[in-house]
Design a protein around this nucleic acid. Structure first.
Length: 210
DNA sequence: AATTTTTCCAACCGCGTACGG
DNA sequence: TCCGTACGCGGTTGGAAAAAT
């Protein structure tokens, strides 16, 4: 038995939203707040499914959205977060105020991916594209991989990046991953700090070649 | 100027998961 | 514990706009 449809498809609009529909959605949410997307369309007088309303609001109509071009800082942050989290767009978006997961995903696929490829970096692994060829040529190679920032002067406390009020948080904790022993490497989880965890809070990965 | 190709992004689709009965 | 429902997420698509021919 398949999953039941989220709405009565025969009586819902699809495709681009009209100004009228946007207006109805905005005024309804202003008056009643977000929540219960399933019943919202009917209550707001919209011939849309709840899913579509939610997406339109989150990705386009929300008043706190930034929109416009990404800054260089945002660009770099996205790359850094992607190297840590992979395609977890919602988590990445959570670290970029005013940006949506959809927007970041699109930006990644259209701009950043291409930029990394042109620099010879695999956007999926964040490693040089010719790494595979190196491994093909040297099958016995045992690579102890570590993702680290450029070396900094000692006084610079490299990975303990000040974040908000708690300046002892590592990058992973700043992402809200402090409950995970597999990710945290900061003062909140000092055992990890001494056992092979690095800047991006990833356990040092070891590539064993057969 | 007309046509074709490429780029970009809003929106859709389907799946996984949380939650309540 | 199971089942149905709703929500949220990531992958994909469709079509408008821009660029190239």
């Amino acid at each position: 038995m398949g999953r039941s449809p989220c709405c009565e498809k025969a009586h819902t609009n699809k495709g681009a939203w009209t100004k009228e529909e946007d207006h109805r959605l905005i005024s309804y949410i202003r008056a009643h707040g977000e929540g219960c997307w399933r019943s919202l369309p009917k209550a707001a007088g919209l011939l849309r499914c709840g899913k579509s309303c939610r997406l339109r609001w989150i990705n386009y109509l929300r008043p706190d959205l930034k929109r416009g071009n990404f800054t260089l800082e945002e660009d770099q942050l996205i790359i850094k977060l992607h190297s840590l989290l992979g395609n977890k767009w919602s988590l990445i978006a959570g670290r970029l105020p005013g940006r949506t997961d959809n927007e970041i995903k699109n930006y990644w696929n259209t701009h950043i991916r291409r930029k990394l490829l042109s620099r010879g970096i695999d956007p999926a692994t964040h490693r040089p594209l010719n790494d595979d060829k190196v491994l093909e040529r040297c099958p016995d190679l045992n690579l102890e991989l570590t993702i680290s920032p450029p070396r900094q002067p000692q006084s610079d406390q490299h990975h303990l990046k000040p974040v908000g009020r708690n300046s002892n948080l590592c990058f992973a904790c700043s992402l809200g991953l402090q409950n995970s022993k597999d990710h945290c490497s900061c003062a909140l989880n000092t055992a990890n700090a001494a056992s092979g965890h690095d800047f991006l809070a990833l356990k040092t990965s070891v590539l064993e070649m057969k």
